[in-house]
Design a protein around this nucleic acid. Structure first.
Length: 469
RNA sequence: GGCCCCAUCGUCUAGAGGCCCAGGACACGGCCCUCUCAAGGCUGAAACACGGGUUCGAAUCCCGUUGGGGCCA
């Protein structure tokens, strides 16, 4: 029997969760869910100078928003590296006792000198091994690495990657000041948390042979590894702040639905035939770590927005309303109390917006009367025959027996005919008067949703020719 | 600098020797639909980095070059 799958996402709380980290988290989560395993969140906060509580909260908040729930991790104690120093110490002692690690007191100056010499010879710097057999009992703790041979990383994405021991050296597990190094903490954490699959960024592939040697020295079995390519900026360099918004909450604030974000991130480096849109259940069912690509992918905002649009367009009314309401409020607008009316409004808006922010913007006129009118259009439509046509319209609308979109359309068509105009003439005039704009959802739907009273009020509030901005 | 990874349309990718003079999606152009804007439908342009092999046959396998990225410093 293979042991149950246990994976982890281990961010450093030195900033917000960015999209690269979010994708790593997502792939781990999908892998766990697909295999019915456990997903663990671990906070790698050994860099105390840059780790903050705010950042931990922010990362947790971002993961929750994305819906990547974990079985083990904060707020439960014991999932932060700063709470685990006893474990690191304990494992260090074990390595010393077993003779697999030794203390070293080489002064930094000497090491620097050797490093420079190696560089001059165009060779990889390797620790000389000066302290290997000196039997010291204090100093920096180094792992004994064989001089000869190779270590092979059997990577689920890259296949077998071989590292020559001559390129590795007796790396430091614990610094002379007693603090454990990153690679050592990771190994101890992963073994003590019984992690079966380490799924992480490509940037750790080069560290992996060192870690494998450490697992072996500790006499632990080595987990499976999968190193995924990183997310790149448009210039193909590693995605960073200078490429614009990269934090997960920036996308939430921009009105991207979490499901769309997840869908986009999943498709970045992974695919399933020609399918582009995946429900979460489909993602869990179809995800296969072996189908993850080995090459880096550029983060494409445009495609993310397209996916966001797909979700907004097809989502059922109630969840869409739940997502939109905070954005209506944030814009300082009034949320219609009648939920079915709101749903009707959203139905006319959803295919016109790529984000929730945009949706509120294009539907602004539903939530408040136009405060201004598009100047160029107003100058053309509210002059000449405009006012007279509006008056005729008001009269006709006052008499409409049934205030529905089809009935309204009928009235418009009859009046259009009578005035010898085209439908577009009256439609645009009305649109501008009612929404302040020349583009909106179908005007009859808009009027129906606004209601007779509000429509007539807006038609009557049109400014005198030339008085608009 | 040493080592490691990567390389199909502008972008995300399909492709695991013949199904490919390379398919889908985003973005872009055109046409249609149409009360505006969208959405939708149809359609167009657009790629196997380069050079050697292996093979009857290579985007697919091997080697090298170039380019990009990463790790160590």
């Amino acid at each position: 029997m293979t042991p149950p799958v246990r994976v982890r996402f281990a961010p450093s709380p030195t900033g917000h969760l960015h999209v690269g980290g979010a994708r790593t988290a997502l792939f781990n989560w999908l892998f766990a869910r697909h295999h019915g395993g456990a997903y663990i969140l671990r906070i790698e906060d050994t860099d105390r100078s840059r780790s903050t509580e705010e950042n931990i909260d922010s990362i947790v908040d971002a993961l929750r928003w994305l819906g990547l729930d974990w079985e083990e991790g904060p707020p439960t104690a014991g999932y932060r590296q700063t709470e685990r120093f006893d474990l690191y110490r304990e494992h260090a002692s074990r390595l010393v006792a077993a003779g697999r690690a030794y203390y070293c007191d080489c002064p930094p100056a000497l090491l620097d000198e050797q490093r420079k010499a190696a560089e001059a010879r165009k060779e990889t710097f390797r620790y000389s091994g000066r302290c290997r057999e000196r039997g010291l009992t204090a100093g920096a703790l180094r792992l004994r690495v064989p001089d000869e041979g190779t270590t092979v990383v059997n990577d689920l994405i890259h296949g077998a990657v071989t590292f020559d021991h001559r390129q590795l050296d007796d790396w430091i597990l614990v610094r002379s000041d007693g603090t454990p190094t990153y690679n050592f903490c990771v190994v101890v954490d992963d073994v003590t948390m019984r992690i079966t699959h380490v799924i992480r960024g490509n940037d750790h592939l080069s560290n992996t042979p060192k870690q494998i040697l450490c697992y072996e020295a500790l006499d632990y079995s080595v987990p499976e590894f999968a190193h995924m390519a990183m997310i790149l900026g448009p210039d193909r360099s590693r995605l960073s702040k200078r490429h614009g918004a990269t934090s997960v909450q920036a996308f939430r604030d921009a009105g991207i639905p979490a499901d769309a974000m997840v869908n986009y991130l999943a498709r970045l480096g992974w695919s399933h035939g020609d399918q582009e849109v995946f429900s979460r259940a489909e993602l869990v069912e179809l995800f296969d770590i072996k189908a993850v690509g080995a090459s880096g992918a550029i983060f494409d905002h445009t495609k993310l927005e397209w996916l966001s649009h797909q979700y907004i367009k097809t989502m059922p009314a109630a969840p869409l309303a739940a997502l939109v309401i905070p954005f209506i409020e944030r814009a300082g607008l009034a949320v219609p109390s009648d939920r079915s009316r709101l749903a009707g409004m959203l139905d006319t808006l959803r295919e016109r917006a790529k984000t929730l922010v945009e949706l509120v913007e294009v539907g602004r006129f539903y939530f408040e009367r136009p405060r201004q009118y598009e100047a160029k259009a107003a100058a053309e439509l509210f002059t000449g025959a405009g006012p007279a046509r509006l008056a005729r319209l008001v009269t006709a609308l006052e008499a409409v027996p049934e205030w529905t979109a089809p009935a309204l359309e009928g009235v418009f068509r009859v009046l259009t005919e009578a005035l010898g105009l085209k439908l577009v003439d009256l439609a645009q005039l009305t649109r501008l008067a009612v929404t302040g704009r020349t583009a909106s959802p179908p005007i009859f739907d808009v009027l129906a949703l606004l209601g007779r009273e509000e429509t007539l009020a807006r038609l009557g509030a049109v400014p005198a020719a030339g008085a608009s901005t």
